[in-house]
Design a protein around this nucleic acid. Structure first.
Lengths: 236, 236
DNA sequence: GACTGCCTAGAGTATATACTCTAATAATAG
DNA sequence: CTATTATTAGAGTATATACTCTAGGCAGTC
């Protein structure tokens, strides 16, 4: 693999694990056992590395959220969209953590991210439209649909931060893809009241698959072997 | 005013305006025209300053979210809770921006914030319960209520980040309390499907007050005199 | 007026961070 | 083989950052 690509890969890995703020260019170089000079031969600065990683992220999500125009959506499609979005979020999870700072330090990124957000919102909106066409949810006025789409976006993009910050204090960094995907439960909760009777049961069953596991059940996750301390999502 | 309090006040102000990451202890001292030594006489380190500010925040929100047990809730109560929460968010807005980093660097804070989150979720949950008692929303099973409360929390705590990151590129930092409170529109959107017929119209009217103003109307905000570039909340 | 306790100034420091510079080594083309 | 280009090492640097240390001022008090 080319050094350039190795830098991108390692950066992403380190950023995800320890946060962009805690990872310096020297760390990245050291991790790859290359010299700082070498790193700076390939990238003008840290911002450029982050920007390229963002572009990969963007490409991935855009690819996943390509909504077909020529056919009705199925529940499988919905599942795929939800799973994919959370997969993307997971793979580039460092990005949302320091989002505001990153956008403040790079105007290209700010501009691109803004457009990215709008594309995502538009995609969610279109999904709602097509779910209505398919008779899965009741059709809603455009007004409400936009507001709902935005709420879906807010829940999706904040779910990870919630998990990380609501975690018990002993294991600050631990988070698994399985836990992350419990966000799907939350997203489907948003859609519950709008389901048609025909599909209600099916969606409820789907939602049930992502129900957060309780703290008493730490074995359940498939990603990391670290001991997990569950999150009290249901409140006492 | 005592130097110690001035430090807390200035820190909060600077953190809010430019982000905790961009503000050093030397900046704070310089801003107050005191020496670094003086600052460090009053606080052992930067974390301690942040921790005390958080405790103020906590106290404020706990005060606002004290739900009365002895009477039914009214729509005015609901409005008060929503307005207060967003006021608090505004006053301590730096906090959520770098939340994950802050919690990673201070275990006291992590622990306290976790409990704070749980108290907030419990309060939201209780509000839902009391809104049902008051006949404003339909009663829901505890399961659903918890999931809804969590969604409300996710929307509230992510709304500001959304505004800041979805803003057009020209004015990175601009954000007003008025815009922030448009998050109330989003929160009420979550509750729409659960309203009782008796209250539906009233809540719709309340929600309407917070409807996001369009980009074409930049005059509308009451907070800052900066030129604002609106956010395309409705998607084209 | 000296003693004490609180507060403050300001120079200073160890470490980190993003990044540069030069020289050398591989790779490739003619 | 030679000339050129692409890549790499590694020492080095300017700046920032969080924080320390010493000396001294100021208010009250006996």
């Amino acid at each position: 693999m080319k050094t350039r690509d190795k830098i991108l890969l390692s950066s992403l890995e380190l950023f995800n694990e320890r946060g962009e703020r805690n990872i310096t260019t020297n760390h990245i170089a050291a991790h790859l056992a290359i010299s700082p000079g070498n790193l700076y031969y390939h990238f003008r600065n840290k911002s450029d590395i982050i920007y390229e990683i963002f572009q990969e992220y963007e490409k991935l999500v855009d690819y996943y959220l390509d909504i077909p125009e020529d056919r009705l959506l199925t529940l499988d499609d919905l599942t795929f969209y939800l799973e994919s979005v959370f997969d993307g979020l997971w793979s580039y999870r460092f990005f949302h953590r320091d989002l505001e700072y990153l956008l403040d330090s790079d105007t290209r990124l700010r501009q691109d991210y803004r457009e990215f957000t709008n594309r995502c919102l538009a995609a969610i909106n279109r999904i709602f439209g097509k779910l209505a066409e398919a008779g899965i949810i009741e059709p809603q006025p455009e007004d409400l649909r936009s507001a709902m789409s935005l709420n879906v976006w807010l829940v999706i993009t904040n779910w990870m931060a919630f998990l990380k910050t609501a975690h018990a204090s002993d294991e600050p960094a631990s988070l698994t893809l399985t836990e992350l995907k419990q966000g799907i439960y939350q997203v489907l909760t948003l859609e519950l009241p709008y389901l048609t009777p025909d599909y209600r049961e099916q969606v409820l069953a789907l939602r049930e698959k992502y129900r957060p596991t309780l703290p008493e059940n730490p074995e359940q996750n498939g990603e990391s072997s670290r001991a997990e301390t569950g999150v009290s999502v249901g409140i006492g």
